[in-house]
Each structure stands twice: as structure tokens, then as C-alpha cells.
Simulated assay, not measured.
Amino acid sequence: MLVDIGTEEGNSWLGHIYNLQGFVQFRLGSTEDALSFFNKAAEAFRQMRRADDGPWLVVNYGNLAWLHHHLGDQAESEAYLSKVDALMKKYPSPSQDELHAETYAEKAWTLMKFSNDRELLADYFQRAIKMQPEMVEWNTSYFLWLVNTSEHRDDGLAANILEKMRVAQEQDPENFCLAACYLEQRGKKREDVKDEARELAVKVLRNPVSSYNGMRAILRVYSNYISIDEAIALAEEALELHPDERYLKRCAALCLKRKIRYFRDRHTNQSMIDRAVSLHEEVISLYPHFSLVKNIDLANIHAKSNNGMAKADQMYQDLLKMDLKPAEKQLLYNQYEKYLNSD
């Protein structure tokens, strides 16, 4: 999923992304790629902060020290540890009991990707933002996380949080992901956001493709507050502009699945189902770690197709034979029961 985040210039979290990718590559056994990503992280921080050093490099230098230690290069490891010590002396934290704001922000961002510890994540973000309120991207990321954790609440965020989100959006007006999420929350409060959503969609289409460019959020706004058909049209338009982007294929597949499974009407024809099947097959190959969920989706789509029940039955039988983890089995059994009881 880190691949989908995007590494275009101007991404405020680019250094953090590279740091995280470096760690992942090391865990996968690719030390050369890990070193490359850690070095990219250092350069990204320098470009974004327009400075050769700063507290934002503490984690990066620590990563490089750790990597060189594992590579057996103790001299290089010690050199980076010395750089860490120098930075911590030059840019001390506000108190001995606290880390530097940059470190809290990095920890919070990493927890967003790898942990369900909501209290710790919120604490890290709030500490970082309190120490350096001028870092609008931290505030933005905090609210994006809040939205994601409340995505399935029909009533949206509490009024006081929504007001803070409005302020964050005004402070970071070029973040279209936050703008789309803010529209979504207002839609949940029964505000009419159609016109604003259409205006924002034009901007999102011009934005570099990434999982944080606002596309998925604006598609949710379209689906819920305009129409699922316009959401599909928007997703297909994005794919026409960027036909090789796997993230956009995933977005389009989600829209089509939703239309076919939950909005079945006279506008749902076999060609649309065929398109959904084709996209889901691509997504399964592009996101192998999501293959169970996507294969379930594909089976359910086949079930809506003309003469597709046999294919759906076979897919479910094949999935039931797989060696799955308990949580995966529970998911599969739940979906299979719904499938058997569907019309």
C-alpha cells in the first residue's frame, strides 16, 4: 500500500514514506533497496524543509545507523549515531520527558500505517501539533486519520471536531484529500455539497495520482451525495487520464462493485458487469495481499451476471478449500452465508 501513497515532489510526507519503505525493504531482505530509500528520505527532507539539517533527520539518521550496524559496518553506524547526538544537542526537545515534535510526528505517521493503537497515535499527533502548530501537514494528517476511523459512522464527526477540520482545511487548501473528506463529513450532516464536490473533482483529476490525492474520498462523496453513476464516470475518466495506475483501477472497481451489488437497476447491464469482472481480475493480480477480499467481490459480481451463478459457486468452493487464518475464515463464511441467502 505504500506504493499507492505516491512519491511526487511536494508530498509533505515524502521523507517519512521513504523511511518507511526503507524499513520494509530491510525486513524483506533487500538491504540495498533499504539503503537507497533511507538516502532518498534524507534528500526529501532537505528539499521539503529547505535546509541541510534539522530535527527531522534524527529518525532518518537513526535508521541509517541501524542499517549499517546490521550490515556490519560499525564505523558508518557510529558516524550516523554521532550525527543523531549532534542534532539532538542542536535541536533539543522542550523537556527531558518529551521527544522532539518531529519525532512524535514520524511515530504518529508510522502508527497510521502499522498499528491499531488509536490512543497512542492520537497522543503523538496532538503532542507534535501542540509543539509546532505551524506544521499544517501534521494537522491535516491527524484529521484524515480521524475521518478514516469514523468512516462507517452515518452521523459523521462531532460538531467540535468538524469545526476544527474546517480550520485545518482552510490552513491547507491545496490538500484535496482533506477537502474531499470535509465535504463528506458535511454531507453526513445533510448539507448539500453537490456543486462543491463537482468543482473539487476537477482539481483532483489534475492532481498527481496517489492514495492521498483525494480520489477515493471524492468518489465516496459522489456515490453517497450525487449518484453512483456519476461516481463511476469520474473513476473511468481518471483511468482514461492514467490508464496504468493500479490505484485508480482499484477505485473504479470499488465503484462498479457498489453499483452492481447495491444499486442494481435497469442501468446495470451485462457490459458493466463484464467491465467490473475485468477490473477486479486486474486488481487481484495487482494487490495479491487483498486477493481474498477481491475474489469474494468477484464471485459476488459473477453471481449478478447472466449465467454467472456457476462461476460464482465454483469461486466460493475454491475459496472454501484455501488454508486461511481464523479471521479470514470468519470473513469468508460470513460472505458465503450472505451469498447463499441472496436473491
Rank of each mutant, 00 (worst) to 15 (best):
T268D: 05
T268P: 00
T268H: 01
N269A: 00
Q270A: 03
Q270E: 06
S271V: 03
S271L: 05
S271H: 10
S271R: 11
S271D: 13
M272S: 10
I273H: 06
I273N: 12
D274F: 02
D274G: 09
D274Q: 03
D274M: 11
R275A: 10
R275N: 04
A276S: 10
A276E: 07
V277K: 07
S278I: 10
S278R: 10
S278F: 15
L279N: 04
L279P: 11
L279R: 04
L279T: 01
H280D: 10
E281N: 11
E281R: 11
E281T: 08
E282V: 12
E282Q: 15
E282L: 10
E282A: 09
E282Y: 06
V283S: 01
V283E: 01
I284Y: 11
I284F: 08
I284C: 13
I284G: 09
I284R: 01
I284V: 12
S285C: 14
S285F: 06
L286C: 06
L286F: 14
L286K: 02
L286T: 11
P288F: 08
S291I: 01
V293R: 12
V293W: 10
V293P: 00
V293E: 13
V293I: 12
K294P: 00
K294H: 13
N295W: 07
N295H: 12
I296Y: 09
I296Q: 08
I296W: 02
D297W: 08
D297T: 10
L298K: 08
L298Q: 02
L298E: 04
A299V: 08
A299Y: 04
A299I: 06
I301S: 02
I301W: 01
H302W: 15
A303K: 14
A303P: 03
K304Q: 13
S305T: 06
N306F: 09
N306E: 15
N306K: 15
N306G: 12
N307F: 15
N307G: 07
N307K: 12
N307W: 11
N307D: 08
G308Y: 06
G308E: 09
G308N: 06
M309Y: 10
M309E: 12
A310T: 12
